[in-house]
Amino acid sequence: MTDPRLFRLRATFVEEGRLAMLSHLEVAHTLERVVRRAKLPFAISQGFSPHMKIAFGAALPVGVGSTCEIFDLQLTEYVAPAKALAALQAASVPELMVQECHYIEHNATAASVAFPFSTYEVVFDRAIESIEAPETVTVVRKRKEKTLVVGEFLVKPFELEGNKAVFTLEAKPTGSLRPDLLLAHCVFDGEVVSITRVAQSEMC
């Protein structure tokens, strides 16, 4: 729940080309600076360490690109979405470009949890006949090994078409499976050229 007196702007942006190699924190820093450069009337938190009221969607792993990233920004004044978009675009670098923005309800679910289903498109260096996902993937988190059951996360299996494949992963409150990690454990004949998040949705 956010302050109902503030205007809550939701923006989507792409992360492509070389900039897919940015970390979540680097993207967050960059976007705060984009908002400042765009001179939007952003809200500032009160307290000991004032900061911009901006929130980001689910983190994207380093090396994975996206056509549909999200951030929510709270504004103290209404700015027409088209105007806000133009200002944000003028302040952005081409490969981290804001694409669209609109206002959302002050009590709308945060972008980081509102869209648990992410669809990824993977491009291979050649046409792929088949791809086989493992039953489990073991990950190391905070020096502890954790075994993830792939079936619990991979809610839509791989759809192959030529040198491309599409699949959907669900993020759980208890954790999620990284798309790049899943692919590293899959069996197929070829090399991954790129992975891109192409959709984030509320439902599968």
């Binding site: 080309g17 070389r18 190699m21 940015l22 970390s23 450069r37 090396g63 670098v93």
Partner: peptide, 19 residues
């Protein structure tokens, strides 16, 4: 260079395209 950057510690050191 790109494949090396992808595996490097902090790729953003090498990618250019900053504001």
């Amino acid at each position: 260079v790109a494949p090396l950057v992808a595996k490097a510690e902090r790729p953003s050191r090498y990618i250019n395209h900053e504001w």
